[in-house]
Design a protein around this nucleic acid. Sequence first.
DNA 1: CTTGACTCCGTACTTATATACGGAGATTAC
DNA 2: GTAATCTCCGTATATAAGTACGGAGTCAAG
Lengths: 138, 138
Amino acid sequence: MKSRLTIGKLAEAAGVGVETVRFYQRSGLLAEPARPFKGYREYSQADVRRILFIKRAQTLGFNLGNIMGLLKLDGPQACSLTHDLAVNKLHLVEGKITELRSIRRALKQMVRQCELDHETGTCPIIHALVEGSMPGEF
Amino acid sequence: MKSRLTIGKLAEAAGVGVETVRFYQRSGLLAEPARPFKGYREYSQADVRRILFIKRAQTLGFNLGNIMGLLKLDGPQACSLTHDLAVNKLHLVEGKITELRSIRRALKQMVRQCELDHETGTCPIIHALVEGSMPGEF
DNA sequence: CTTGACTCCGTACTTATATACGGAGATTAC
DNA sequence: GTAATCTCCGTATATAAGTACGGAGTCAAG
């Protein structure tokens, strides 16, 4: 079923605001739709999917520029570009996870320390984060 | 050696711009330094470390507000206050880890899809946008 | 002592990603 | 048929995190 949508329906279906749709249009992320009726924009389900794609790609760390690039391309080279971008992001994300785990360890230790001895110290996270920094004045 | 730095030297040592230092000061991320000399700010190595910390924390996805909170964990405080702050930041960090793990999962899926279909010459992600439904959960 | 680099300050501008506003016309619900 | 809602448009505002500008004072090198 090819349901035809107004801008408001599209926005609702995709979980964004009407203004966001207009903004995506201005930005070139969505093509200007047909306006068969008093200048009112008319959208299709494909537009819903396109916005959902944009939103999902955003949560993966792609910005709108990246996304526009992805959307413009099709065919085998698009796949390899997509692949490379994804692999890069993946490495970035794994590095961050590792670092956050070490911060978490430090924080847990801090909490435990605090609960055991009622002693005050400086925060181990900060020293874990800044290589070579001495404990003390911050 | 307690080298005393001008704002320019500090900025250079920390790899940021002079204006950024002033901005951090306005934002409360750096304390107003002493100005023993015609109103010129004077910094120490501790300020360099503090800026490096800020920059590092940013790459992990903390915003300046978060970072201000993390910085408050350091230094002498009432133990109960430290404890509460630490628990609070621990939750922040765990949320960040969870978020990144889900991004990682999605990216891995995306990479896998691309690799599977690479021989066929079509990118499943792009293809799905043109017609039909998205590959699940990408 | 002159020249160029550095510092001061407040304010304005930038980029990315949207949101909001205002007023006119169209559509829909009751 | 009237009120509420929706759509149109261009422009303005929001937020985070800086970055740049302009003019005046100051410092360091040649």
